[in-house]
Lab assay of single mutants.
Amino acid sequence: MTEYKLVVVGAGGVGKSALTIQLIQNHFVDEYDPTIEDSYRKQVVIDGETCLLDILDTAGQEEYSAMRDQYMRTGEGFLCVFAINNTKSFEDIHHYREQIKRVKDSEDVPMVLVGNKCDLPSRTVDTKQAQDLARSYGIPFIETSAKTRQGVDDAFYTLVREIRKHKEKMSKDGKKKKKKSKTKCVIM
């Protein structure tokens, strides 16, 4: 069974824990209790493949930012979460993405942009803004509501699919490099 290491990042209060708990335990946590770091595991079937999701729910508070490099190193894919009623959390996505790329030393890291709290009427981040940002990053965008469960499975499952595509691409690139290195030079 394939294991996928997913990391949920975003500013404090955007609903990272609520999304994760909704996926794992099928219930909505409405009281806000700032996370330092929590880890969850769940076995699911995605596109006919049974897999184990190892999900790291991270601290959004700035005082825990020193811990970010460590979990970013171990993560295979990242859910970059903002709240649709919090423009600052949307603007912060850029910083999370840049930090992930720096730590992973790669421009090509599996990510999904997630606009959470889409059940709320007080939207300050337009869907088109988020779609445009995701398009500019070359990553999928999904709106979710941890409260109603809308888009929750889709967000995590899409990230797994992005990781699969990335692994497939990397193995193809690896095979191309191996083929090239088999060419021999004969000096007579």
Rank of each mutant, 00 (worst) to 15 (best):
R102H: 03
K167Y: 04
E63I: 01
V112D: 00
L120S: 11
S106K: 04
K16W: 00
K88N: 10
G174C: 13
Y157H: 14
A146C: 09
E37G: 13
H94Y: 03
T183N: 15
C80F: 15
K176L: 11
K5V: 00
G151F: 07
V125S: 11
E168G: 05
A134T: 03
A11M: 12
A155W: 01
G12W: 02
I187L: 15
D69G: 04
Q70V: 02
E49M: 02
Y137T: 05
G115K: 02
G10V: 00
F90A: 03
E98Q: 06
M170V: 07
V114T: 01
R149V: 12
F78E: 00
E143V: 06
D119P: 01
T158N: 10
R68H: 09
T50I: 05
S17A: 01
S145D: 14
S145T: 05
C80R: 01
I142Q: 14
T2N: 12
F82C: 13
R68I: 02
L159Y: 00
D30L: 04
K88C: 10
Y137N: 05
E49V: 06
R164G: 07
N26Q: 06
V125I: 11
D126Q: 08
D47S: 04
I55L: 06
D154K: 12
F141K: 05
K5P: 03
M111K: 03
A130G: 11
K42H: 07
R102K: 02
K165A: 08
G12A: 08
V44I: 05
V114H: 00
S181Q: 09
Q25P: 13
G138A: 05
A18K: 09
E107D: 12
E3P: 14
Q129R: 12
F28I: 10
E98G: 02
A134C: 06
T58Q: 09
I84Y: 15
K42I: 06
D132L: 08
V112H: 01
P34A: 08
I142C: 05
D173Y: 04
A134W: 04
N116S: 13
V29P: 08
F78A: 01
F156V: 15
Y71E: 14
R41H: 09
L52G: 12
L23M: 11
P121D: 13
D154E: 14
D30F: 06
L133D: 04
I21S: 15
F82T: 11
L19S: 12
S89P: 09
E162L: 06
K178Q: 11
R102C: 02
G174V: 12
G75I: 13
D126N: 10
L159W: 01
V8N: 00
A59F: 06
K88H: 15
F82Q: 01
T74Y: 09
T158E: 09
R68G: 11
E37M: 05
F141L: 09
R41N: 08
H27F: 08
E63Y: 04
T124V: 10
